[in-house]
Design a protein around this nucleic acid. Structure first.
Lengths: 170, 170
DNA sequence: ATGATTTCGTTTGCTACCAAACGGACTATA
DNA sequence: TATAGTCCGTTTGGTAGCAAACGAAATCAT
């Protein structure tokens, strides 16, 4: 997990040796460690980059963008479905939607047939925003993986997909 | 980014078609989109799993664990170096260290030669914790990538490393 | 039907995270 | 040695994120 594990310098070997020393006889699964820690570091780097670049111009966080995007593609949704599709807890989604509502990007409506339920939909301003933003965001995504060939992007996505399935399994 | 993009069902095609429809004539870099969104989803899944499993038993967050781990491997460090190695802003690190200090895992010391500076070191309790925790955490890491061969783990780590370098570049 | 249970979204209390502002401590230039 | 500038870690103010508690609404069981 620390930055040093990915530097192409002798400290990497130092780090591995130090870790093994701390561990004594216990065995160390270095390949798994590096794979998992790189997933996390890549996600952090990619998210920070997006939020500082494209997203900040539109006053959106990563979660806010995701929510807007899902609503744009799928249209008006009930909050429970929206939370699942955005991979957020329902409590978190309440807050994200509240922020988006304050910014004027979405609106809530109560469902007549079941008054516990609430749907969320984009406003016109929300539609304008996501339509202006998404092409730029997609370019940014391309930038983030510009060192990878198409095949490598697909490999990366597929390997990650298998990790997601494993980690999400009950 | 939404969950549906990774389901092996016709909705994936629906999603791609819907997105393209919303985009009109603008081109869509689907491979990059899927690669980037899977990085983020995998990181979230893996982190959640760790925090609900291994880490919760020790009362640690992901960031708290990382900090403990770095201090264990490298020994006492100044906060600026620690923040960089843990990939956290200095403000965030202050909070994480504060929490770890409250739990009795680390202690701070002022540097005599420069009284602005502060070092952080593990306490005995912190050492016991990380020594008990790390082998379990490494097993968990193996679990998260158990569907991948050794070669695939290395490929994944290498592809991600290239993304990290790109995203971290100024 | 009515009481108990379940199912909604929201609220609450907490940690995490960042950027920017801050104040104390060092340093360089005069 | 002043004093202006720089460099520390901390604080502040904001969003994000979760789990658990909550109140209202629907449904189930009797």
């Amino acid at each position: 997990m620390p930055a040093v594990l990915n530097r192409a310098d002798p400290r990497l070997l130092d780090a591995e040796r130090l870790i093994q020393q701390r561990l004594g006889d216990r065995r160390l699964d270095f390949d798994s460690m590096l794979a998992v820690s790189n997933i996390y570091r890549a996600a952090t780097a990619v998210r920070r980059r997006a939020e500082k670049g494209v997203l900040s111009e539109f006053g959106l966080s990563w979660g806010g963008f995701t929510t807007l995007w899902v609503l744009w593609v799928w249209g008006e949704m009930q909050t429970a479905d929206l939370a699942e599709e955005c991979d957020l807890s329902k409590g978190t989604l309440t807050g994200v939607v509240k922020t988006l509502e304050r910014r004027g990007f979405v609106k809530r409506s109560q469902v007549a047939s079941d008054r516990r339920r609430v749907t969320v939909a984009l406003t016109d301003a929300g539609i304008d925003t996501i339509e202006g933003l998404f092409p730029r965001f997609n370019l940014y995504e391309g930038e983030m993986v510009r060192e990878l060939s198409i095949t490598e992007k697909q490999t990366l996505a597929e390997l990650l997909r298998r990790v997601i399935v494993t980690a999400d399994a009950p």
